[in-house]
Design a protein around this nucleic acid. Structure first.
Length: 153
DNA sequence: GCCAACGTTGGC
DNA sequence: GCCAACGTTGGC
């Protein structure tokens, strides 16, 4: 069964345009160091759709759609002490952190801001709203379709 | 840049 | 296993 997700990125670090520039090969989503977010990535399946969300910018909001093209595998940046997200507790024999690959699918016609999302009662139970700090969150198909509908208003 | 929310760590 | 201290996220 297809699942739907929302992934946050700071556009100054890696924007939807940056993902688009990667083309079909997409990008690996390294650096997630939160267990709940990791668990979501481990539950992702190839072909799942992702709302791409720009955070820590004005305004923050959903800007596009991406697709899961490779299921969870160890986040090798955790093993490299020169990396920002190095974690001495993640052992290559028993990795603690995982990542998936996603690629660009589309840009929303209009950004759907966090304000818009919070103002829509149909989206009030989205994990983005109930669990604001989580960088990888779940949503259902109705949430996904509602955001796409809002983006063309 | 501030600060509220909240996840993680470590001492006990 | 509790909880205080600390660090991080992310909206504004």
């Amino acid at each position: 069964m297809k699942q739907f997700w929302l992934m946050k990125s700071e556009p100054e670090a890696f924007s939807l345009e940056d993902l688009k520039a990667q083309g079909a090969k997409g990008e690996h989503w390294d650096g997630v160091r939160n267990y709940q977010a990791r668990n979501h990535m481990q539950n992702m399946q190839q072909g799942d759709l992702v709302i791409y969300y720009h955070s820590s910018c004005k305004p923050a909001g959903a800007v596009g759609v991406a697709k899961v093209i490779k299921e969870a595998y160890p986040d090798f940046t955790a093993f490299d002490h020169t990396e920002r997200y190095y974690d001495a507790k993640s052992d290559p024999e028993n990795p603690r952190w995982f990542m998936v690959d996603i690629n660009y699918t589309k840009t929303l016609k209009n950004m759907v801001t966090l304000k818009d999302i919070k103002a829509n009662p149909l989206l009030s139970d989205m994990q983005l709203v109930t669990h604001a700090r989580l960088s990888v969150s779940q949503m259902n198909e109705d949430h996904f379709n509602e955001i796409l509908a809002m983006s063309t208003l």
